[in-house]
Amino acid sequence: MDLFSHAWTALRAAVAELPDEDFERPSGCAGWLVRDLVCHLVIDAQDVLITLVTPAGTEPTVDAVTYWKLVDPPTGEDPLDALIPRLAAAYGEPRWLKFHLDDVGSAAGRAAELADPGVRVGTRDEVLTTGDYLTAYVLEWTLHHLDLIARLPSAAEPPAETLAASRAALERIAGTAFPASFSDSDALLVGTGRRTPTDAERAALTGFPAKLPLILG
């Protein structure tokens, strides 16, 4: 749960420090500008708040790893994906997106800090402990932090601890470890298809047992 707070605080701080012009630049999410990604983070924060107050009375069906499902690459036909850019554009000025993310995001962060990690909650038709849910979201925040800074070389990177934890989570999802020559960022970017591997990385992946990219849903 400390890693959740660390990852979420760092991501929100990175957004808060962006100059307005960066909101119109492409993000690491295909087809989304930075402003679209930030709008998605607002919705993610709302999901966290909703889940933390949705108790479940049955046994867990997933944990922090099995919460993530491997899915087919997006086709662009998901109605929610199409809605996000329209919502983001409706904010008009970046300051309103920043304000909303800070407002809802701060509340989600406080709720996570106050949550009992052993309580079971329901989301996406699954049941898991609050601790596992928040642990799963470390990967979400870290990947989206990398998406945020994909074309913003001066922006702050994700914390080293959350990068390492996210790599370990992705390796558990894949059922295998990435080559030791990969940095944590490279393992996450290449592993999830956010970046094409270099020739050297492709050679290092020879015989890699998992099918790449790992698209999480």
Rank of each mutant, 00 (worst) to 15 (best):
V104G: 02
E59D: 15
T135Y: 00
R110A: 14
A82H: 10
R167S: 09
G109C: 10
L87A: 08
A90G: 15
P94L: 03
Y91T: 11
H144D: 04
A155W: 07
R151Q: 13
H40M: 02
R95V: 15
T129E: 05
L134E: 02
P158M: 02
Y133N: 02
A64C: 11
K69I: 12
V119L: 14
R95A: 15
R110H: 15
L49T: 09
T123P: 09
A169F: 01
L101I: 06
G118P: 10
V62R: 00
E59A: 12
K98E: 00
E171D: 12
G92F: 13
A136K: 00
H144K: 07
W96T: 12
V138W: 01
V48G: 02
T129C: 06
S106Y: 11
S166T: 08
L146P: 02
P55C: 05
L70Q: 14
T135W: 00
T142S: 11
V127W: 02
T162S: 06
P153Y: 06
G118V: 09
L83P: 04
H145A: 10
G76R: 04
T130A: 12
A112C: 08
P73C: 13
S154K: 13
L49H: 03
A89V: 13
I84D: 04
L101S: 07
P117M: 09
R110M: 14
A64N: 01
L143E: 00
A112W: 01
P60F: 01
T123E: 07
R167H: 08
V104D: 07
L170D: 00
R86Q: 15
L148W: 02
D81F: 06
T51V: 03
H40Q: 10
T176P: 06
L49F: 07
F178W: 03
T162P: 06
W68D: 01
L170G: 00
A177G: 09
